[in-house]
Amino acid sequence: MIPIIILMTGVAYLCGSLSSAVVICKLYGLADPRTAGSKNPGTTNVYRLGGRIPALLVLVMDILKGTVPVYCSYWLGLEPVALGFVAIAACLGHIFPLYFGFKGGKAVATAFGAMLPVGPELAGLTILSWLAALFVWGYSSLAAIIAVILAPFYTYFIKPDYTLPVAMLALLIIVRHKANILRLFSGQEPRVWDKRGKLKNSN
């Protein structure tokens, strides 16, 4: 089983390394999301640079980068903790992409995708938490942080065996948002619906 874990962890990292934001922006002739806008190659920045369709494509691709390797690992019989390592590998690929100079995004969508095999209940609750936090406060980064903090608690009541892997993912995402957390405390984090030209940093 160890060789399979190593293999799937490597596959997950390589899948995660495919930067959806960079690829979609190139296809649509948009500015490089690593150097324009918030300089974060993620869905929110692509939305500000190119609008809904490119952002939606980035979101779907980023989610699949997490779902596919974890789901395949699940069907190969990997235990929950091993699935957690596969999921983290996919997220690390997104954060430090091999194909794009190890400069990636926050991995929120990829982490969400990695949680999908746990069940639709977790997915639904996580999305609702994100939407509620976004509606109340307007910060994409804060919404993501709140959603991942709640995810392990949801998992405990849905499929307790997967609580640790989901908690591992949540911790990674929170650490990745360190800069956003500091900006939130200092009042410098922009809201999603601010004018595009005024946005400098975001999730």
Rank of each mutant, 00 (worst) to 15 (best):
P117D: 03
G119P: 03
A82W: 10
G77P: 03
A147H: 07
G84L: 02
R191T: 13
G50Q: 02
Y139L: 12
A111H: 01
L92V: 12
H177F: 07
I158A: 05
M61V: 10
I149N: 00
F153M: 10
G50V: 00
K26A: 13
G93V: 04
W75E: 14
L7P: 10
I149T: 06
F185S: 11
I63W: 04
G51P: 04
V118W: 00
S186V: 02
Y28F: 15
M8R: 12
T43G: 07
A111C: 07
L164M: 13
W193G: 03
L164T: 11
A31S: 15
R48D: 08
P117W: 01
A147Y: 06
L14Y: 08
R191S: 12
G113K: 03
G42L: 09
A147E: 04
P117C: 02
P69W: 01
N201R: 14
P160E: 11
F102C: 06
N45V: 10
I24M: 10
L64F: 14
D194I: 03
I145C: 05
A21C: 12
Q188D: 13
L169D: 02
T67N: 03
V68I: 15
D32R: 12
V46W: 01
T9D: 04
V60T: 10
R48S: 09
L116T: 08
A107R: 02
P33M: 08
M61Y: 12
V23R: 12
L7Q: 10
Y13W: 11
V70S: 05
M61R: 09
K200L: 13
A36C: 13
R52D: 10
Y162A: 02
R196I: 14
R34I: 14
A167E: 11
G37P: 12
I53S: 09
P120D: 05
A151Q: 08
C15H: 09
V136W: 14
P165V: 12
P80I: 00
L116A: 09
L57D: 06
G138E: 06
I5V: 15
G93E: 05
L78D: 02
L128H: 07
G93N: 05
P160R: 13
M61W: 14
A107D: 03
G187L: 06
T43Y: 04
A55K: 05
R183T: 03
F153Q: 07
A167F: 15
V60E: 06
D194E: 14
G113D: 00
V46M: 08
K195G: 14
G104Y: 00
G66H: 09
F185E: 07
K106I: 05
Y28M: 07
F85D: 11
G66W: 13
A90T: 04
L128W: 06
I149M: 11
N203S: 15
F135G: 00
F102R: 09
L49S: 06
I145P: 02
A144N: 06
P69H: 02
